[in-house]
Amino acid sequence: MKDALQPFHEKLFYKTDPLVIMHDLNLFFTKFLSEKIDTEYQFIAAVQQYILQNRGTVLSKDLEKFTGYSERHLERKFESYMGISPKTYSNIIRLHYFLSLMKQENKGQNMTLLSYHAGYSDQSHLIREFRKNVGLTPRQYANTENKMAVNFIEL
């Protein structure tokens, strides 16, 4: 990439129109990324989509059946692209799904019912996962005024 970047950088240096510069940058990086996107990327994207479609409630056995790979092999491939394990990714997706349910429902909605809908086995499991990732209980989070200020999902 470094060899291709130097002449490209020099070519951009003399351009003054921001739209032309952005267009050239888009072309350069699109070409660069298209060369990097291979079957492994498509495989990981399919696994991500599978986890998203199932709202994070995917077991290792389900992923093994879906991919045809062993749990450990899939974990290595996924971590090399995503930086986290499929299990961690699934937990994040499930937690986000729970948050979307919380947002859709009234504040007085039963947390136990929401936790079941989000795929948690019970409310204590939800609270434990939520506190581990967010640093607050779901109730504390719901009562927080500025939710963006809350440290959410530390990777």
Results as ranks from 00 to 15, higher is better:
residue 131 R to S: 14
residue 19 L to C: 05
residue 26 N to G: 09
residue 140 Q to S: 09
residue 92 I to Q: 14
residue 126 L to K: 02
residue 1 M to D: 11
residue 10 E to K: 02
residue 93 I to E: 02
residue 90 S to G: 11
residue 100 S to Q: 15
residue 43 F to T: 08
residue 115 S to N: 06
residue 59 L to Q: 12
residue 121 S to A: 10
residue 145 E to N: 12
residue 88 T to M: 06
residue 102 M to F: 10
residue 24 D to Q: 11
residue 5 L to Y: 15
residue 138 P to N: 03
residue 21 I to S: 02
residue 124 S to Y: 11
residue 142 A to H: 10
residue 107 K to L: 14
residue 83 G to R: 10
residue 47 V to D: 00
residue 149 A to T: 14
residue 13 F to Q: 08
residue 138 P to G: 05
residue 55 R to K: 15
residue 5 L to H: 07
residue 51 I to C: 06
residue 24 D to R: 06
residue 34 S to E: 13
residue 113 L to T: 12
residue 150 V to E: 00
residue 36 K to R: 07
residue 65 K to M: 09
residue 37 I to M: 01
residue 70 S to A: 03
residue 132 K to I: 10
residue 154 E to W: 09
residue 40 E to I: 00
residue 130 F to K: 04
residue 69 Y to S: 01
residue 63 L to Y: 11
residue 86 P to E: 12
residue 148 M to Y: 13
residue 136 L to V: 05
residue 150 V to P: 04
residue 94 R to V: 14
residue 138 P to S: 08
residue 115 S to F: 04
residue 84 I to S: 06
residue 103 K to Y: 12
residue 9 H to N: 09
residue 7 P to W: 09
residue 94 R to E: 09
residue 92 I to A: 03
residue 152 F to E: 02
residue 31 K to R: 12
residue 154 E to N: 13
residue 70 S to Q: 09
residue 45 A to I: 10
residue 65 K to H: 13
residue 147 K to G: 05
residue 151 N to D: 13
residue 123 Q to L: 02
residue 93 I to G: 01
residue 56 G to M: 07
residue 81 Y to T: 06
residue 74 L to H: 06
residue 137 T to V: 04
residue 8 F to D: 06
residue 153 I to F: 15
residue 96 H to D: 13
residue 59 L to G: 07
residue 139 R to E: 15
residue 3 D to R: 09
residue 47 V to W: 02
residue 61 K to L: 11
residue 28 F to Y: 08
residue 119 G to R: 08
residue 86 P to N: 09
residue 104 Q to L: 08
residue 61 K to M: 07
residue 21 I to L: 03
residue 63 L to V: 08
residue 50 Y to N: 09
residue 103 K to I: 10
residue 58 V to K: 07
residue 33 L to Y: 11
residue 90 S to C: 04
residue 17 D to V: 01
residue 139 R to L: 13
residue 104 Q to F: 10
residue 112 T to Y: 13
residue 40 E to G: 03
residue 83 G to V: 12
residue 150 V to T: 06
residue 62 D to E: 15
residue 118 A to W: 08
residue 123 Q to C: 01
residue 122 D to E: 07
residue 16 T to E: 13
residue 107 K to E: 15
residue 110 N to L: 00
residue 116 Y to A: 01
residue 71 E to H: 15
residue 61 K to I: 10
residue 30 T to Q: 07
residue 98 F to I: 08
residue 113 L to G: 03
residue 147 K to Q: 14
residue 92 I to C: 00
residue 124 S to N: 10
residue 154 E to A: 11
residue 147 K to C: 06
residue 142 A to D: 14
residue 132 K to G: 02
residue 76 R to P: 04
residue 39 T to A: 12
residue 63 L to H: 04
residue 21 I to Q: 02
residue 152 F to L: 07
residue 53 Q to Y: 13
residue 5 L to N: 05
residue 7 P to V: 04
residue 126 L to I: 03
residue 144 T to D: 05
residue 40 E to A: 02
residue 15 K to N: 01
residue 79 E to M: 10
residue 83 G to N: 07
residue 86 P to C: 03
residue 15 K to F: 05
residue 105 E to I: 05
residue 23 H to G: 11
residue 126 L to C: 09
residue 57 T to S: 11
residue 138 P to C: 07
residue 68 G to W: 03
residue 74 L to P: 03
residue 38 D to E: 06
residue 23 H to I: 06
residue 36 K to Y: 02
residue 57 T to V: 14
residue 38 D to F: 00
residue 90 S to P: 01
residue 93 I to D: 00
residue 143 N to C: 04
residue 93 I to F: 00
residue 42 Q to C: 13
residue 104 Q to T: 13
residue 107 K to Y: 14
